[in-house]
Design a protein around this nucleic acid. Structure first.
Lengths: 239, 239
DNA sequence: GTATGATTAAAACGAACGTTTGATCTATTG
DNA sequence: CAATAGATCAAACGTTCGTTTTAATCATAC
């Protein structure tokens, strides 16, 4: 009971900081959440945060590390099991998507252990301006992402790898908005059916439709619709 | 030359601030971009920013207003022309999507007049933690968004309106990631074909596939894949 | 010529920030 | 029990922030 006591107290302080930091980073962003807010909400001394994590950036990384480890390992495990089961054969695209996005949605709908909070934070972080955040996130994603891209490449013969990477990217955007939309969409779209249990199937149907869409043709004709508007219209808008 | 001179000088200062604010907000976020950075980069006095815009928040809103006006009017005009042409009939879903996302992509590929910069900023802003930003953005989107949702509802008989709103939301996520990905994706996915001219067709093919995907069934069976993981795995990840 | 509004310069303001310091407390160890 | 090492505390440090103020300069309008 001696040795346990100190470790328990220590982890309590450390983890209380981690918990509140996760919530406040999600609520106010990296810059908007101050060390004083985090530590006071956690009920610990301000200096304790620097004692355990050295800097604010390191605290932010620590918040991310434990969740990303969980997410990455869940995704890697799902893929490994599928590939083991298929014994070298190609996988169904729908199952690949479930392996990749299923753990993210599971975490996003877990409101009891902070998973929901973290996924909101993750959605913000992809477009986070701070360089160290984006670099850190890219490193965290790289490994598992490429393994899923490879699985999709094998499952979708004839689809160029560049197309698969782009569609994987599009899908991540849809999922990110879907998750943050659980909270943020209501003011924009009143009366929307936001049953969390329906979100998973809803989203997966959309993703599969996008993934399986016929390949685009890069003819000059359809591309004309996306040409920049003339300058004059920009200045005329606000005289 | 008298009357023109004062107006030109005035707008020069005001617009130089707006330009640099747009670029720096996109680069460092609302909190990360300071008034001192903005005014010094614009080559104007610090007090001039407060003189013209009163507060930093008002400056941020001014940056948004001019671009959102442009984006909203382009979208509204495209839809109005289509509906006029169809004379009360339903529109092709692909044309509706082009009307909605075409102007956004056009702005995003316009690197000469700041459109690209602003669309990066817009992508960040949807998940922006600051309340006043989200509320402002929701108000800006609401009108045009509902008109496009109505057009899609007429174009896709049998699809519930809730489903259309969600898919519109998913599509906005995909587009947002596509736009920010032009810059941010390269470190994650080296060797990716990022030809900007191909992005439009690529993205539109994906969006159409997702929009037209068969409706999901809300049976309990497929929903099981999205249940939260047990708590033990969370604690076991980082002991 | 005088009033007006735009701009600059320089300084100051109170507040909040991340981080550091040195003392104090606590629990295990020899 | 005394010594040691880690955890926690109150307080302060130096910096930066958004904003305001005061004064002076300049170009235009009436």
């Amino acid at each position: 009971m001696r040795k346990l006591a100190i470790e328990t107290d220590t982890r309590d302080t450390r983890e209380r900081i981690l918990e509140e930091a996760e919530a406040l980073f999600a609520e106010h962003g990296f810059d908007g959440a101050s060390m004083r807010m985090i530590t006071s909400r956690a009920g610990v001394n301000l200096a304790a945060a620097n004692y355990h994590f050295r800097t604010k950036e390191a605290l932010f990384q620590a918040v991310f590390q434990r969740r990303m480890d969980q997410l990455n390992s869940a995704r890697a495990k799902a893929l490994a099991e599928m590939e083991n089961e298929a014994a070298g054969g190609a996988l169904k695209p729908s199952r690949i998507l479930e392996g990749f996005f299923g753990p993210a949605l599971a975490m996003a709908t877990d409101t009891e252990h902070g998973g929901h909070t973290f996924m909101r934070l993750l959605g913000q972080t992809y477009t986070e301006p701070a360089q160290f955040v984006r670099r850190f996130l890219a490193e965290e994603y790289a490994d598992v992402m490429h393994r899923y891209a490879a699985a999709l490449y094998k499952a979708l013969p004839g689809v160029p790898v560049a197309e698969i990477l782009w569609r994987l990217h599009f899908m991540m955007g849809a999922v990110s908005y879907a998750i943050s939309g659980i909270d943020a969409l209501k003011p924009v779209m009143p009366g929307l059916d936001d049953d969390p249990a329906k979100l998973g199937p809803r989203l997966m149907a959309f993703l599969l439709g996008g993934l399986r869409a016929p390949l685009a043709e890069f003819a000059p004709a359809p591309a004309a619709a996306f040409e920049p508007r003339p300058v004059s219209s920009i200045n005329a808008a606000n005289p």
